[in-house]
């Protein structure tokens, strides 16, 4: 299968690989996918005020899955929570020129963003008196 140059770039030089402290109050963690399906994404955001100041990922999956999550972390940094909620998988497909058979990778990345935000919001809700 031929990969686009952008997929290759993210695969060879993934951005924001790593982990944030998942116990921290201002960190949201999303883990989506399943090993049996061949892809698992862990995406984390660190929020200050209303803004995402840091994002990290780790992904088990094909090159397109790695690229989709790497790209997602790039896009998340600096966005507000509301802006982050607007990221759509189709934007990832377009940016990375993913072929139809790889669209599920972008769906998973969108799921990971939503899941990390939901985790963050849950923590905020739980933290309020």
């Amino acid at each position: 299968m031929a990969y686009s140059n952008k997929v290759l770039d993210h695969y060879n030089n993934p951005r924001n690989v790593g982990s944030l402290d998942k116990g921290a109050q201002n960190v949201g963690t999303g883990v989506v996918g399943a090993p049996e399906c061949g892809d698992v994404m862990k995406l984390q955001i660190q929020v200050e005020g209303d803004r995402i100041v840091d994002a990290k990922f780790k992904t088990f999956g094909c090159g397109s899955a790695i690229a989709s999550s790497s790209l997602a972390t790039e896009w998340l940094k600096g966005k507000t929570i509301d802006e982050a909620m607007q990221i759509k998988n189709t934007q990832i497909v377009e940016e990375l020129a993913l072929p139809p058979v790889k669209i599920h990778c972008s769906v998973l990345a969108e799921d990971a963003i939503k899941s990390a935000i939901a985790d963050y919001k849950k923590k905020q809700g739980a933290g309020q008196p």
Partner: peptide, 9 residues
Amino acid sequence: TVNWQASNH
């Protein structure tokens, strides 16, 4: 042992 949330693909 992890309860994976597989997406619907």
